[in-house]
Simulated assay, not measured.
Amino acid sequence: MYDYHVHSNYSDGDFLPSMLGAAEAAGLSGVGIADHCVVVPDERIRRFRDAYGFALDQTYPRRRGAIEELRDRFEIEVYDSAEMDYEPDAEAEIRAFLDEAAFDYTVGSVHSLDGTNVHYEEPFAAMSEAERRATVERYFEKVVALAESELFEIAAHVDLVERNAALRGLATEDQYDRVARAFADSRTVPEINAGRVLDDYGEFHPTPALFSALRDAGVEFVVGTDSHAPDEIAARAEKIREFTASTGLSPVELDL
Rank of each mutant, 00 (worst) to 15 (best):
P230Q: 12
R236P: 04
E232V: 08
A235Q: 15
V219Q: 09
F211K: 10
D216S: 14
D226Q: 07
L214T: 07
A234F: 11
P230V: 09
V222H: 05
A213W: 08
H205N: 14
F221W: 12
H228N: 05
L214E: 00
R236I: 05
L210D: 01
Y201T: 03
S212L: 11
D226W: 04
S212M: 02
E203F: 13
R236M: 08
E232M: 11
Y201F: 15
E220L: 07
T225R: 02
G202Y: 12
P230D: 11
I233L: 05
P206L: 04
F204R: 08
R215V: 00
V219N: 02
E203C: 10
V219T: 09
I233N: 04
D231H: 15
A229K: 13
G218M: 11
E232G: 09
A217C: 04
S212I: 01
P206N: 03
R215H: 13
A209E: 14
E220F: 06
E220D: 14
G202A: 10
F221Q: 01
L214R: 00
A213T: 06
G202Q: 06
G224M: 06
A234D: 15
A235I: 12
P230K: 11
R215I: 00
F204D: 00
G218I: 11
G224R: 02
D226C: 08
V219L: 08
A217V: 12
P206Q: 08
H228M: 04
E203W: 12
A213N: 03
I233Q: 09
F211L: 15
H228I: 02
S212P: 00
F211A: 07
P230L: 09
E232I: 02
L210G: 01
V219D: 02
V223S: 01
S212R: 15
D216T: 10
V222E: 00
D226Y: 00
G202F: 11
P230G: 08
T225A: 02
A213R: 15
E232H: 11
A234R: 14
L210Q: 01
V223Q: 13
A234S: 14
E232W: 08
V222N: 01
S227N: 03
A209Y: 04
S227H: 01
P206E: 10
S227R: 05
S227V: 07
S227T: 07
Y201H: 15
F211E: 07
A213H: 08
H205V: 01
P208N: 09
A234K: 15
H228Q: 03
D231I: 07
G224D: 06
Y201R: 07
A235N: 10
D226S: 03
G202H: 04
F211T: 00
F204V: 07
E220V: 13
H205C: 13
E220R: 14
R215P: 01
V222M: 08
